[in-house]
Design a protein around this nucleic acid. Structure first.
Lengths: 225, 225
DNA sequence: ATAATACTCGAACATGCGTTCTTCGTCAAG
DNA sequence: CTTGACGAAGAACGCATGTTCGAGTATTAT
């Protein structure tokens, strides 16, 4: 007989993991079994305990028995005040932007970057954050280099004036990072570098806003020039 | 009558803070009052409680009363695998570079940035790291913007070829961030932006290398253009 | 159908852990 | 000397929280 759900993580497992993470971020310490139950609509502490045991066997969490709140996330652990932000892919001038399938915060073996919560906008939720590695020099007008890591927050296709956004222009086959302004006849996409000219996009031209840029990280190694 | 110890943090306060941090790092959750007492050679829970109350009043920690292990470090906490890097000041094109007086304990009220250890060079020691906030557009040739945060590692005035360094040129009253190359007749300081020309510095001209740039962080807010 | 397994519940139990109270010693000011 | 603030201890108290158990309901295999 096979397990009914051969899959590793059921809905409740995920829900619990999500809650563990958010509670740790919000409060600075892990929740109790009862708090987990309340947050995940499980009415019995023994059921929560049941799932925690499974998660521990799967290696997702570590438990210190007999200890209050003795639960800690392992690998995918945004310990303390850190976000582990998945790097969804590379961003290239001539190609569409890779965006992570929503709600894949967990168990993706892909690479990620750790960013302190204190550096991100206060209301950030790890669900909506992802990162892209810049490929090529084409973003140089946004003061962004080859190899830089751009941290983005998905906004559901919306953007407010003055925000730096990642835009995909299907008709031009162009990806770009610009400050966004809505104007009478369409949109103005303004480069960060003041000496460069803005792009004007007509009202009718399709324009996909893939996210709002919240941070750029550049790690500097040696270079050969 | 003055308080016997007008200073904010006594030895026990520091010891407790240190333990809070290490326990969080080691176990993934905060310790109990009794555990704190044991680790800091305080034999009574009420005494620990006494100090925790003080630390809370000082804003060093947050407590959730009545909650087991409801203690979390606030700002001054390199929680998890994070470095808390002091921001030594601002870096301006026409002024010398502020370098932190060596030996900070981390309980000083100055501003700092949190950076994940995973993003920094592996052999980094928190002692030799500091950060500067860029003032003005003068570093634009290094792809560095006004407001960016530059994380530096002090190298004792040395630099290897190909490293990006912060340099102070006393004779020109100039601070700049460039890739460093030693050449026959002196030094070549190469801008990160390939379209810009390098600076050549003669062997005899004084040149102070204040540190090696290991990372640049740009937080993006809205901008008015 | 029967048995076996996975999942769920609620409640009792035991203890972990924060709180509070009393007591005591030290030091500086009046 | 007395007073009062500060630092320290230890014990008792009681709620918070992990554990365990008995029982019930699906779902699947035999």
């Amino acid at each position: 007989m096979m397990a009914r759900k051969a899959k590793g993580l059921g809905e409740r497992h995920k829900k619990i993991l999500r809650f563990l993470e958010s509670h740790q971020n919000r409060e600075g310490f892990p929740p109790t079994i009862r708090e987990i139950g309340e947050a995940t609509d499980i009415s019995s502490t023994s059921v929560v305990n049941y799932y925690l045991d499974q998660l521990e066997k799967m290696g997702k969490i570590e438990r210190q028995r007999k200890i209050s709140r003795g639960i800690s996330l392992t690998e995918s652990s945004p310990l303390g005040d850190m976000f582990k932000i998945p790097v969804a892919g590379r961003i290239v001038a001539g190609e569409p932007i890779p965006v992570p399938a929503s709600d894949f915060t967990y168990f993706d073996a892909e690479s990620s970057v750790d960013v302190a919560r204190s550096l991100l906008p206060s209301r950030s939720d790890s669900e909506e954050l992802f990162a892209l590695e810049v490929d090529g020099d084409s973003m140089i007008d946004a003061m962004i280099n080859d190899g830089d890591i751009v941290v983005m927050k998905s906004t559901g296709g919306e953007a407010k004036n003055g925000e730096m956004v990642a835009v995909w222009l299907p008709e031009r086959d162009e990806t770009t990072l610009k400050y966004f302004y809505k104007e009478n006849e369409g949109y103005r996409l303004q480069p960060a570098n003041p000496t460069m000219e803005p792009i004007h996009v007509d009202k009718d031209e399709p324009l996909e806003i893939k996210g709002k840029v919240v941070m750029v990280i550049r790690q500097i190694h040696k270079t050969v020039i």
